[in-house]
Amino acid sequence: MDNVISYMSKYIRVLLHICALLPLVMLFYDLSYDNLSVNPIQDVTIRTGKPALVLLVLVLSITPVRKWFGLHSLIQFRRSLGLYAFMYASLHFLVFIGLDYGFDIELLQLSVFKKPYVVLGLLAYLTLAPLAITSTHGWIRRLGKYWKILHKLVYLTGVLAVSHYIWAVKSDIRQPLIFAAVICIMLLARVRAFNRAIYLLRERISTK
C-alpha cells in the first residue's frame, strides 16, 4: 500500500490540490451566481472556517496514520495540507475583520473580547502562521533541530481551533464534538502507551 502511494504520488498530489481548492471554487461559484443565503457574510465565514479545520485535522492525522498503517510516504503531502489549512484560516480571518467588521478597529476591540470564541480563533491563527512561514526548505535548514520543536505548535493550533468551533455554535455541539474527538485521538497518538495498545490490537486482529 505504501508503495502504491509512492508510485501514485503525482496523481494523489493533483487530487489533493483539487480537493483542497474545491471549497474555495464552490464558494466563488455561489458568490458569483448569488447562491449564498440572505446572510452572505456568515456563509462566507463558515465556508472558509470549516475547510481550515478539516485540513488541520488531516495534517494532525498524517503522523499517526503513517505509524499505525505503515503508510510512510504520506509525509510528502503534509506540508500542502498545512498550507491549505493556513490559506483557509487566513481567508476566514480576513472575512471576519474585513467583511464582517469592515476593518473597524474600535468595533473589533469592543467585540473581540466579549466573544471568547473569537479570541480562541485568533490564537489558533497566530499559532498556525509561524508554521506556514517556516514551512519552506530554507527555514527547515536554518532552524535545524528547532524546526521540529517549533512545529509541535500545531497540536496547540488543533486544540484552539476546535475549542473555537465548540464555543461558536449556538447550542447543539454534536458536530464540533466529533472534531474534538478526532483531534483527541490524534493527540493521543503521540502517547507511546496509546500507540502500543493500537499495535497490540492490530496484531491480535491479524493473528485471528
Binding site: 440572505v38 457574510i41 467583511l99 467585540s111 466579549k114 466573544k115
Partner: peptide
Amino acid sequence: HHPRWSQDTERRIGELGR
C-alpha cells in the same frame, strides 16, 4: 451579553455593514 458573544451590534438582512 450572551455569555459567549456580544449583543452590541447586528446585521440587518440585506445590508453588509453592522
